[in-house]
Amino acid sequence: MKLSSLWSLSTLFYLFTALFSLACVYPFVLVLTSSLTDEVELIRNGYSLFPETWSIAAYKAILSTPTIPRAYLVTIFTTVAGTLISLIVTSMIAYALSGRKLYYRNHINFIFYFTMLFNGGLVSFYILVTRYLQLTDSIWVYIIPFVLNPWNMFLMRNFFNEIPEELYESSRLEGAGEWRILWQIVLPLSLPALATIGLFYALMYWNSWQPALLFINNDKLFSLQYIIMQIIRNIDIAQNIAVSSTAGSVINTQRPPAFTVRLATAMVTIGPIIFLYPFLQRYFVGGLKIGAIKG
């Protein structure tokens, strides 16, 4: 009786998740194949998993932009450095606010939460960054204003809450400093949390393009996403504007394949980051058994 119910429950789970995964991957594959379809055929026949004419014109158009290799470097640096710094800062504050350590913890919690809802707007942020912090045309402008994300912080605090204080109460009594506790006890037990929050921060930094738009004029410091975003934005314009110019009309003949380029950018965008999650999955294992430590 038990065995069969076990079996059917698993089957149900497999079915459900497999179906959902299929629903997720199918459009994705469609985007992929469409981006590799000849533009004219795409326009004529629409999207298909099995196009008649394959073409890498879209990818050529994107990757031939001279600024792309450099942008990859910019983005990789930003992502790695940013994620590291963010994780450190976030862990510190999340640990401090977890449990019932601090008398003023809820006041501090409120301070952070308030900033999630209330926002001074683009203008004041812009003035702050350009005039007072002088971060224009610096690669740090991708990182510094975004180091701490309150949502991530609350999430991490929530994970830390799950770790019973008794665990390190003893260490504290023996005189261990908070740093040691955080570093040697709490963090190793929180690998899933670190992996998750790390993933979220990494994605944020990887996708970052607004700082480039606002604060960077030096095209050697453009992020990957910004260049891609430019391509798409400018295609949109090119498609809509009647370029009523004698010169323009000749040049217009060589418009980049608009549709396929848009689709291809989705692929190029995702690129390496898609491998981050599978890589991090190994950390989604529970920490050491509580019982073992207690014993």
């Binding site: 504050i93 606010l97 350590k101």
Partner: peptide, 10 residues
């Protein structure tokens, strides 16, 4: 020391 940890974020 714990309060100190909150400083960077604050």
């Amino acid at each position: 020391y714990i309060y100190l940890m909150t400083l960077p974020a604050l």
